[in-house]
Amino acid sequence: MLRWRPAYFPTLSVLVFLVIWQAAAEVADSTLLPGPLAVFAVMTEAALSGELLPHLAITLLRVAVSFVVAMLIGTAIGIVMGRSPAINRLFDPWLIVLLNLSALVIIILAYIWVGLTEAAVILAVAINKIPNVVVTMREGARSLDRDYLEMAESFRLGSRKTLVHVVMPQLYPFLTAAARSGLALIWKIVLVAELLGRSNGIGFQLNLYFQLFDISGILAYAFAFILVVQGIEVGVLRPLERRAHRWRR
């Protein structure tokens, strides 16, 4: 017999959500609110016809590249700003401007200045995400333990060993926080960029289904990508996190 254990809660909660959704769809009985079964049918059909995967792949590639670019640049800037009060005071106003600049404005400007290219998408998405990474990593860099840094210095570890073995392990929690919020933010922005100026990808398809008023199609593509992101969370982020935390009591 199934015991009432918290381990089942996520599955249970998803099931409850799907049941409520399906029930609402039955009651509404409208093309404007297709149920999960209908959406799943469209998703399978699109996958089998070979239409879904190329769009999913190109979007995933754009997400991956801009994610890596944003994490690398944001982490580097964040560490420098967290360690140097002077540089922080100098660039903090820039950071505030970037943080509050609308994603849409950045995408439009990137398309106008760089052209309707892949580079413009990556640039726009990275610029959107970098300030968030900087803020998180700056917090991490400020909280670095002076005791460990002194230890590294007194044993003359040098800057490379200090960064890899002393600084980065202290930043892992901040890095995973930035990665998690980054993944969610970036794929949303990539869709907008695709909708505005690309001829493939999930965002482009959503635009197509929007013009056709095909809600099932829109939801099918959206949920296909949610499944992928969830897969990355479970398959990549969590194992990495477990590895990084295995020393904790």
């Binding site: 005791d147 230890m151 073995h165 392990p169 990084a244 020393w247």
Partner: peptide, 9 residues
């Protein structure tokens, strides 16, 4: 040091 300051990770 006064405290061991071993890297916990």
């Amino acid at each position: 040091f006064q405290t061991p300051r071993l890297l916990p990770w």
